[in-house]
């Protein structure tokens, strides 16, 4: 419904932030964000406006949420197989941000 793009704040100048989106920079307006942001923060953006600061610990919690869902299904052998696959993948890649 609304294309929301996460990015990392590079610099803040009043109501305007320079935001890095996957390696590309674009200005984002800070008029409607509900907490102060600074360089290094993640923000969610929609039509050129930041609508949410994404706290680092919430990124970890998102990953934790998947783990909980998977654990609930853990008694199943297949899930266990896939879980070991995930663990192995994480060892290789260092995880995806968690």
């Amino acid at each position: 419904m609304c294309l929301g793009v996460p990015g990392r704040v590079v610099a803040v100048n009043g109501q305007i932030a320079q935001v890095d989106f996957f390696g590309v920079r674009r200005e984002t307006r800070l008029d409607v964000i509900d907490e102060p942001v600074q360089a290094g923060d993640y923000v969610l953006n929609h039509v050129g406006f930041a609508i949410r600061r994404i706290p680092d610990h919430e990124i970890e919690e998102t990953l934790a949420l998947y783990e909980v869902l998977l654990r609930e299904a853990e008694n199943d052998m297949m899930a266990a197989d896939v879980r070991s696959e995930i663990d192995a993948a994480q060892l290789h890649s260092g995880g995806s941000g968690g």
């Binding site: 996957f22 590309v24 674009r26």
Partner: peptide, 12 residues
């Protein structure tokens, strides 16, 4: 190209 991928992602 990663930059093209990024802009594509931004613009849907």
């Amino acid at each position: 190209n990663p930059v093209v991928r990024a802009v594509a992602e931004m613009l849907g």
